[in-house]
Simulated assay, not measured.
Amino acid sequence: MTHDVRPAMAFGWGAIIGTLGGLIGLGGAEFRLPVLIGLFRFAALEAIILNKAMSLVVVASALPFRAGTVSFGAIADHWSIIVNLLAGSLLGAWLGAGWATRMESPSLYRVIALLLVGIAAVLLFGHDTHGSGIPLMSGVVQAIAGITAGLVIGVVASLLGVAGGELLIPTLILLFGADIKLAGSLSLAVSLPTMIVGFTRYSRDDSFAVLGRNRRFVLVMAAGSIAGSFVGGKLLGIVPSTILLPALAAILLVSAARIWRHS
């Protein structure tokens, strides 16, 4: 089944999703996956692969966009944090993608639904975190915690086809004491190689052919997501977090319920 016949619809939904993500400093892939499954009627594994491809495009474009706020030099200065998280997230991405390709469709739908509920909880209780600038731990304990957190984030990112920023940013703030702007850029630096590893693992599955059949759809929806992210970023702060985060969490909960029933 091909969805290339609806480019305007794909761009429009991409823009809406990107705007929602941009409002909270994310790419919006958490909201894209339910749309791919519920509205465009892709099977679970195909939707994850498509979401992963579009997330890669959005994240790759976001890094240079943020260079004016946080320079590449500042990111490089914190290479040890990036390496620490990647030590777990790369393995997690490979494992998560492998599990997704082996799961029966009903089980995969349920896993997606449960993970969306978890992301909603993070939006409500973890995303609006403002760290003290002092890391929770240091030394070997911090390194082990970083690898463990990276492993979990890599698995979740692969299973949902997302960049994982909604989990990485609170981790960077709380575990490593990064400020919010630096955490946003560091999360992108961790997300990009993590997604590439997951994407490489998915390429070994027959479902990967969905990208070839829907090439135009992917490019158009990704372009809409990038445009929406830019708009959402400009609107950042206009809508109070006390209203925005519960509203977005509610969207994810409704989506999770529908995907659970879809299974």
Results as ranks from 00 to 15, higher is better:
V156Y: 00
G96V: 00
I173K: 01
G12I: 11
A149W: 02
R110V: 05
L192A: 10
A113F: 03
S80C: 10
N214H: 04
P64D: 13
A97M: 04
G73S: 14
G146F: 05
V197G: 04
A44G: 08
L20K: 10
G161R: 08
L39A: 14
V156G: 04
K234A: 14
A93M: 09
S255Q: 07
K234E: 10
Y202A: 05
R6S: 15
T148D: 11
V197P: 03
D179N: 12
S138A: 15
S61V: 11
G28D: 08
S61D: 08
A97T: 00
S158L: 07
E166S: 12
D77G: 14
R204E: 11
V156W: 01
A113W: 01
L174K: 08
D128K: 13
L86Q: 07
G233F: 00
L159P: 02
A15E: 12
L124H: 01
W79Q: 13
G161P: 03
V83K: 11
I82Q: 04
H3G: 12
R66L: 14
I75C: 13
S255E: 13
S229Y: 00
L236R: 15
L167W: 06
G154M: 06
A257C: 12
P106K: 09
I119F: 11
Q142Y: 07
L91H: 03
W260F: 12
L136T: 03
L168H: 06
L91G: 04
R204G: 05
R32W: 01
S229F: 02
L151H: 07
R41F: 06
P193K: 06
V58Q: 07
A97N: 00
V141Q: 10
A43Y: 02
A121C: 13
G224A: 00
G161L: 08
H262P: 00
I119K: 01
R201C: 08
F42W: 07
I259F: 01
D4L: 04
A250V: 11
V162D: 04
L36R: 03
P135W: 00
G146C: 05
R201W: 05
K234T: 08
A44F: 11
S255K: 05
F199N: 05
V162C: 04
V152H: 08
V239G: 01
L36H: 03
G38T: 13
Y202N: 06
N84G: 09
G237S: 05
G131W: 01
A15G: 14
L123C: 04
D4H: 07
A157E: 03
G38W: 03
I24C: 14
M137A: 10
G212M: 13
